[in-house]
């Protein structure tokens, strides 16, 4: 293998909700500047897994966790690590666009700074670069002071991406970012992902096989069978996972035979 730096990696990640074991021994490495897609049927634990990567997982009251998540070599679940600091480095975009309804478009982009109590000398420039990187600048540049909810769903989602980008994260987690969007908006979000990929590590959960093939360098297939905890069945380069899967279950899933 090459000398890729593994900026983010999960080692033996196990997750429980109450007494129920939902993820078992997940080992995944996310190289810098690459896109990793997490695929698998509903309920296989991929959304749960992605939430462990920026410590959003622990916000669920019954959550339990075992294992390590290394960010730049440091375990984010280590003693004394502040989850808030982790989330500053690891941004997240959710399934449903969630712009802050009481804020304008511009305020939404800057909300991360305000929310983390940071000051930025040049807000206007930051708003423009963030919106440009999320490929939404041209659509909103004339109405930055309109309420965020005046945007369409696809625009709202790209605004949420811009909001995350404004924080300058090293890693961007995306939990089914296009599942609520129409094909046109989906295409634009995918273009955004591809533009961002050279600059950061991206992890994306998706139910859309074509999407995974279009955007991801590598793909992990999660599966949870017969009530057993979810685990990674296959992990590798996207082409290989889709075209020459090692495991027959991967083959069945990516070809639409089940799931």
């Amino acid at each position: 293998m090459s000398s890729r730096t593994y900026q983010l990696s999960a080692e033996n990640v196990n997750v429980w909700f109450g007494e129920r074991h939902v993820l078992k021994d997940v080992n995944l490495a996310f190289p810098s500047n690459q896109v990793t897609a997490l695929i698998g049927p509903s309920g296989c634990g991929k959304s749960t897994f992605i939430r462990t990567l920026n410590r959003m997982h622990e916000l669920i009251p019954s959550a339990g966790f075992g294992g390590k998540v290394l960010l730049d070599g440091e375990d984010i679940y280590g003693d004394g690590v502040d989850p808030v600091k982790v989330r500053l480095k690891v941004g997240m975009v959710f399934q449903k666009p969630n712009p802050f309804p009481t804020m304008t478009i511009q305020e939404n982009v800057l909300s991360g700074l305000k929310l983390s109590g940071r000051k930025n000398p040049n807000n206007e420039e930051l708003v423009e670069t963030s919106l440009r990187r999320a490929s939404i600048w041209n659509e909103v540049k004339d109405r930055l002071n309109d309420p965020a909810l005046s945007l369409s769903g696809g625009q709202q989602q790209r605004l949420c991406i811009a909001r995350s980008l404004a924080m300058g994260p090293d890693v961007l987690l995306m939990d089914e970012p296009c599942s609520a969007l129409d094909p046109g908006s989906t295409r634009r979000v995918e273009e955004t992902i591809l533009e961002l990929a050279p600059q950061m590590t991206i992890v994306i959960v998706t139910h859309n096989m074509q999407q995974a093939q279009r955007v991801a360098d590598q793909t992990a297939f999660f599966l949870s069978e017969d009530g057993n905890p979810g685990h990674v069945v296959e992990f590798g380069a996207t082409e290989q996972v889709f075209e020459q899967p090692v495991d027959p279950r991967t083959n069945d899933y990516v070809n639409g035979h089940f799931g």
Binding site: L59, V84, R87, F100, G112, G117, S164
Partner: peptide
């Protein structure tokens, strides 16, 4: 909605600021 709260926390907001 919980999504708003999570959105704020995911941006690195301390709970009280969110």
């Amino acid at each position: 909605p919980a999504e708003l709260r999570n959105g704020a926390l995911a941006l690195g907001a301390p709970a009280w600021r969110a």
